[in-house]
Design a protein around this nucleic acid. Sequence first.
DNA 1: CCCCATGTTGCTCATATGAGCATCTTCGTC
DNA 2: GACGAAGATGCTCATATGAGCAACATGGGG
Lengths: 314, 314
Amino acid sequence: MPLNTIDDAELLTVRVAELYYDEEKTQDEIGALLGITRWKVGRLLTQARERGIVRIEIVHPRARRLGVERELKERFGLKDAVVVPESDDMLSRVAQAAADYLTSLRPVPRVLGISWGRTLDSVADNLPNGWASGITVVQINGGVSLNRRPGTASTTAAEVAHKGGGQALLLPSPAILERRETARAISSDRTVATVLERAANASAYLYSAGVADSSSILVDSGYLSPADVQELVRKGAVGDVVGRYIDANGNPVDPGLDERTVGLGLDQLRSAHTAIFVVAGEPKHDIARAVVTSSLCSVIVTDEVTAAALLEEI
Amino acid sequence: MPLNTIDDAELLTVRVAELYYDEEKTQDEIGALLGITRWKVGRLLTQARERGIVRIEIVHPRARRLGVERELKERFGLKDAVVVPESDDMLSRVAQAAADYLTSLRPVPRVLGISWGRTLDSVADNLPNGWASGITVVQINGGVSLNRRPGTASTTAAEVAHKGGGQALLLPSPAILERRETARAISSDRTVATVLERAANASAYLYSAGVADSSSILVDSGYLSPADVQELVRKGAVGDVVGRYIDANGNPVDPGLDERTVGLGLDQLRSAHTAIFVVAGEPKHDIARAVVTSSLCSVIVTDEVTAAALLEEI
DNA sequence: CCCCATGTTGCTCATATGAGCATCTTCGTC
DNA sequence: GACGAAGATGCTCATATGAGCAACATGGGG
């Protein structure tokens, strides 16, 4: 007794799909061959695609997932979304995609505000020379000098500016200060205030986010101790955006800390016309969710795993 | 410096492919969107398919590999070939395919000669009831009674016949006898001779092959000892076809043994109009090669791994 | 600097294909 | 067995697409 789990119509569908896609026969020919009308052949092919018997895949390092992008845009009211397929090195794929996006962004931004970190670094690396002409790149959060690896924060901005045939405007301030008063003072100092003002008026922003754990670049750079981060997590922090720790709802998790942080405010990001959020990797799913649900970005660039996590019904 | 390994034209190709296959836009629309003519879009799509950027795959347990089938037919001058994609259980996939092939074979054979073994068993299992009407199934090589598992050889033929609404003609003889004279005697005995004669005039044959090692069903059934097989291998045996051990050139490896074997001769198989050879699995690559290169079959049913091995240039 | 070889582009036109619709089956309900 | 709903089928017709060709760019040798 053959358990004919697979029904006859399905087998026919498979044969039709083979003849059409593998053998490149016309629907007419296939109809003649199998003794069915060409319309039936056409319908079977539609079914085959719908039911996943025929799988059409675009295999390329720079391929994107337009279907998922559409879903993201609809679900979170984004202006745009870029989703790249899974791969071994998703950070660089996503960074590449972000660089592509930036390059083809119209109108070309005159002033671009950027944050810094490993992700932004990678984006800078992937930008082609001449991606813009006469761009002004403004750092939107502090970060000079304290880093162990020299100049991470500033070189990112410099590279982006250099490749865009323009100049970088660095924020000459630590990311986080020890006392609120110092933060206020430095923010109103002319050298810093000027940059913050340019940052506030940037035509577009490009930034990433950090995870709330000791692997954060803010810990690495010495601004926070692992214990500080643990405390923030206890208070509900899921990660940081431009140096500011937020909870799942996108609100600063520690107002005191927030006041000690120098850089663009979250609300300025929220009201920006173009705020491109670049995020890749499993550990950043929570912070990514916080960012998109609280409208911190208008454009997201990410990998399909993160996108899927964001789209999961809760 | 971005190492632009991927050239711009290729990126365009990818975007076009995405819009066409994922977004289901027309070539016209894509042209308008990307500022190129629809003919260019069409050409890029052709390229994308040729260069493997777009991969179209038919995912189905009963899918086949028509491209490989064509190559096999050409390379080995076969009347037909059936190749199924790789899977966990290739034996049953191949058997399923063989059953499908037999069912759709035109003209429907009146008399079908079959061998026996694990592969043929599986084919029988996969045949649907009513696959033919009034078929006569003739066993083409000996094999009664000695088996440990009762009746393997005969039940296969019986099942094929039963499902085809006909009757089985069993070969009432051991596969291999101890003395040449006994083999001659039994072959000319009326009960056996009649069957052999029907077998010689069958309108189609369906058979598999065994590997020349101790896992062979001929060893399992007690006709040969592992030592016998070792000796045959030493003489160049790659496996057996309808009980007869052959070398890589398709010649009997041990004439003495061959004379002691009861059943259809290899030359009768070679001159048959329709000889369907069913073979699956890595270990049978060598015997499969011997069969196709020495024209023992006119039709092969196999898996794509075996097919690829056969097509490898030597 | 010119010329031919080679490849690329935009086109015409024949063909392949899908949308939309009328008709025909099939099957469950009364 | 009659009836209607849901689905399958074959068709017309507008549209999408690929083949084939002429015009055009490109890029080495002379």
